[in-house]
């Protein structure tokens, strides 16, 4: 398991290649998020990501731990950047190795949904009209809530 909160860019291909690929791993699912040049109809020139050092790593570790309780996860890499980013720059990587694709896809999506709503990061966008803090989206919260419903159903 690898969790990194870093300023530097990452190489998604190299990260996936470096994951543990024991003979029982049959699937690796990966998500890479990057900076869009437009948000809510306004063009975005740059993005600054602030985070809570110390809590961020702990929150991500907790999310990965929860994913491991729910699915068969053989290895997992999460990298989240902070600092100043430009459109097209990668922000986040989540890669999950499992025996089968279902677990890899589900755990990867679960980790992303909870990163968006539980990990202490805040985005500030530079737009032609000035800087603005990005508002949390109800749809992201709903995406995370959906997993809690599925946990209750299966409990």
């Amino acid at each position: 398991m690898k969790i990194c909160v870093q300023r530097e860019a990452f190489d998604a291909g190299a990260e996936i290649g470096a994951m543990s690929r024991d003979p029982k791993t049959g699937a690796v699912a990966c998500f890479v998020g990057s900076v869009r040049d437009v948000n809510e109809g306004t063009s975005v020139e740059a993005l600054t990501l602030e985070h809570y050092p110390g809590m961020t790593e702990k929150a991500i570790a907790g999310i990965v731990e929860e994913a491991r309780r729910r699915w068969e996860v053989r290895d997992c890499t999460v990298i989240h950047r902070y600092g100043e980013l430009r459109p097209g720059d990668p922000i986040v990587l989540v890669a999950v190795a499992s025996a089968h694709r279902h677990d890899a896809f589900a755990a990867c999506e679960f980790i992303m949904d909870f990163l968006k709503t539980r990990a202490p990061f805040w985005k500030k966008e530079e737009t032609p009209a000035g800087a603005r803090w990005v508002e949390a989206r109800p749809s992201d919260e709903a995406a995370a809530e959906r997993w809690q419903d599925s946990a209750r159903k299966s409990a």
């Binding site: 990163l115 968006k116 990990a119 805040w122």
Partner: peptide, 9 residues
């Protein structure tokens, strides 16, 4: 710590 709802990812 106090902060607004998070917007990472």
């Amino acid at each position: 710590a106090f902060f607004p709802p998070v917007t990472g990812g």
